[in-house]
């Protein structure tokens, strides 16, 4: 619901006679266009000859192929809560949950497939994940010969974590206590002090 006070009316610009006549403005526009057309030096800077050259990325926020993070024990950090697949606007994440084989957790993904061809790399899954298990890596040159090949399964996504963890370490320290232990085992990993704030 948009409230009255949130609506800002922007006045249409008042046009001068030359604006109304179009042509002077068209000519002014052409000046800009032509300036760019003849500025040879600039051009070389802005275009990167991919794949021979690769652009430097800001690793922290680049949204490339996904990875599934591992906790310090090397287990998949995902708890199969389906938040990512719910948040996903492209419906490209397919999860099947199951009972985990580990005593400190109850749910884990038996299957975790991402259709990288359907994905729009919006990063919503990363935002939605309550345990920072899914992250987008700076890895962007992604090719495959078939559609099937581009559906990344859990093993592949975990492998991507192994490959990329040096470039982009896990954003937050792993938190394994989501109240999942049910109080039977007091010795569970706690969120670090910084995170608690």
């Amino acid at each position: 619901m948009i409230r009255d006070e949130d609506i800002m009316m922007v006045a249409p610009p008042t046009l001068t006679t030359s604006d109304k006549l179009y042509l002077p403005q068209v000519i002014a526009g052409m000046r800009t266009t032509l300036r760019h057309m003849f500025s040879v030096a600039k051009r070389a800077e802005t275009t990167v000859q991919y794949p021979e050259q690769k652009r430097k990325l800001r690793v922290e926020n680049y949204r490339g192929v996904h990875r599934l993070n591992k906790d310090p024990d090397g287990r998949v950090a995902c708890v199969a809560c389906f938040m990512c697949s719910t948040a996903c606007p492209a419906h490209c994440i397919h999860i099947e949950a199951g009972e985990s084989p580990w005593p400190d957790r109850e749910k884990y993904p038996v299957k975790f497939d991402i259709d990288e061809l359907r994905c729009i790399y919006c990063g919503m899954c990363e935002e939605a994940c309550p345990c920072d298990a899914i992250e987008l890596t700076p890895h962007y040159d992604l090719v495959g010969k078939s559609r099937q090949e581009m559906v990344f399964d859990k093993e592949k996504l975990l492998r991507i974590f192994d490959e990329t963890k040096d470039v982009k370490p896990r954003k937050n320290p792993p938190v394994t206590d989501y109240g999942l232990t049910g109080g039977q085992d007091k010795a569970v990993a706690r969120p670090t002090a910084e995170r608690k704030v």
């Binding site: 009972e99 985990s100 084989p101 580990w102 005593p103 400190d104 957790r105 109850e106 232990t181 039977q184």
Partner: peptide
């Protein structure tokens, strides 16, 4: 169930 619920 390896995350073990108490068997009642």
């Amino acid at each position: 169930m390896s995350w073990q619920a108490i068997d009642r």
